[in-house]
């Protein structure tokens, strides 16, 4: 398995290096949306005398910088790619090999993120300076941010694959994926920090997996959680990871029975 991963990483880096324009555009758009939301919240805060709830301008800056990093490293787009694989018949050659197709996606995700993260750093540094971003974490926040980010990325990745397996039944899965992306947009802390959601929405957010994908690692990174809260949130992430893992096992094995090898 290690050898397969090493070879896939080499091939993945070779492949990614072919598309520099796509790479630039990806980085540009991944930064653009959080920065727009940051600008909007800063405007709201300034109109309200400098803060919204417990968030001042510097807190919003820290939040959206952290969110950009987390989104960049934890977001996955597999459902869209999987639909393409199924519709074009490209899944079949992968299914014929003694390596689960999910491993190719793991490598592609990691390669793409490593390839683009360097371009993100100067933009985020400039944003941090411009808005005076305030990170108030203790060293343990940064230490626990790492497993939280990995867990968030894993939940998002597996969730994407569960949605993707719908392609075995309905072939066109992008509409289902877009539906979940919209829910995720509200309940994962992208449109607003989870702490600013109205009470009922906040409860719903923490009862669904989306907050544990992005919002939780962001709050840990910017130092907005106590130690006890952090452990509780990490446990929540562990729970959702287990749920997603089991759900994917069931969806995958049932999906394969349904697979009709369209176009292949």
């Amino acid at each position: 398995m290690i050898g397969a991963y090493r070879a896939l990483f080499v091939a993945g880096f070779q492949n990614a290096s072919q598309y520099r324009v796509q790479l630039f555009l990806y980085v540009f758009f991944s930064v653009l949306r959080p920065i727009i939301f940051l600008a909007a919240w800063v405007a709201v805060a300034q109109a309200r005398g400098g803060s919204v709830g417990t968030f001042g301008v510097a807190d919003f800056a820290a939040y959206y910088i952290a969110l950009t990093i987390v989104l960049h490293l934890a977001l996955a787009w597999d459902a869209y790619e999987f639909e393409f694989l199924v519709r074009q018949g490209r899944l079949s050659p992968l299914l014929l090999r003694p390596l689960h197709p999910i491993h190719y996606a793991v490598v592609n995700n990691i390669v793409w993120k490593l390839f683009t993260i360097a371009a993100l750093v100067p933009v985020l540094a400039l944003t941090a300076i411009t808005f005076g971003a305030r990170f108030q974490g203790e060293p343990w926040h940064y230490a626990l941010f790492v497993p939280s980010l990995v867990l968030g990325a894993a939940i998002r990745f597996l969730f994407g694959w569960i949605v993707a397996t719908a392609a075995f039944w309905i072939t066109r899965v992008s509409s289902v994926s877009t539906f979940f992306d919209r829910i995720q947009f509200i309940f994962s802390g992208q449109i607003a920090p989870l702490a600013l959601l109205p009470g009922a929405l906040q409860v719903i957010a923490y009862a669904m997996p989306f907050a544990y994908m992005f919002g939780v690692p962001v709050d840990i990174l910017r130092g907005a959680t106590t130690f006890e809260q952090t452990l509780l949130l990490l446990a929540g992430q562990g729970f959702w990871l287990a749920v997603c893992y089991l759900a994917l096992q069931v969806a995958w094995s049932r999906g394969l029975r349904q697979y009709s090898g369209v176009g292949a």
Binding site: G3, A4, R6, A7, L8, V10, A11, Q14, N15, Q18, R97, P98, L99
Partner: peptide, 14 residues
């Protein structure tokens, strides 16, 4: 996008 020789190496490992 990569030479076949590299694809063969990937298959060797898989």
């Amino acid at each position: 996008d990569i030479p076949a020789a590299d694809s063969l190496r990937v298959l060797q490992e898989i």
